[in-house]
Amino acid sequence: MKEVAEVTAVDGNRVTVTTQLKTACSGCAQVSNCGAGILSKVFADRNAQFTVVTEQTFSPGDQVQLEVPETAVTRFALLLYGLPILTLLLLAVLLENTGTLPEGFVILLSFAGFAFTFWGLKRWFRKRDIQVNAMVKLETVAAEVQH
């Protein structure tokens, strides 16, 4: 997976880059008729900013290409989207089979487990930032690619 970003700050071997977040709606022919497309226009001005450790030298304002292996993106997406849903379903089934809790509590506890899983994943991803940074490769963008 590749994305063009702009270098916003350099601190030794730590390079801070900013990239424009895109939605799938930008390539769809129904973007003006679809509710999701209209919402994507409202929130179109979103940027992602993060720091990458690299031995290459860059200056603020440089255009760079970020590259992350597809397998890593797929693995993290499955973990981020699959684990909370799996937790919700398993908690609902387990709590319902106890037979001692009212249905309302089963629902509330299942959603609490769902939320707790997101919170835990957020903390876990922060601890893995160093390993994720090692996967990200920065390359200078050629002039013809920028236009």
Rank of each mutant, 00 (worst) to 15 (best):
P60I: 01
T117R: 08
E144L: 06
G27N: 00
D45L: 11
P60H: 03
F43V: 14
D11M: 09
T117H: 06
I130H: 02
G37N: 07
T8G: 00
G35S: 04
L108H: 06
P60C: 00
G120L: 15
F50K: 08
L89E: 01
T71F: 09
L39Y: 05
T71N: 14
R128C: 05
P69T: 08
T19G: 12
V64W: 06
S26A: 10
F58V: 09
N33C: 03
T100N: 13
R14N: 11
L80T: 08
R128M: 12
E139Q: 14
P84W: 01
F76G: 11
T51Q: 04
T117G: 09
M1H: 10
L90W: 05
T98F: 08
G35A: 03
L95A: 07
Y81C: 09
R123T: 02
L39H: 08
R128I: 07
I107P: 00
N47Q: 13
F116N: 02
A24E: 05
V10E: 00
L90K: 00
S59C: 04
C34V: 05
K2V: 01
K22F: 04
G61A: 03
V7D: 01
Q63V: 06
M1G: 11
L95P: 00
T16M: 02
V132G: 02
E3N: 12
L94R: 03
G113F: 01
E6L: 11
L101Y: 06
T51N: 02
L109D: 04
G99H: 09
L21S: 11
F43Q: 09
L80C: 07
Q63S: 14
L39R: 10
V106S: 05
G27L: 02
S40H: 07
S59G: 04
V132Y: 10
L91K: 05
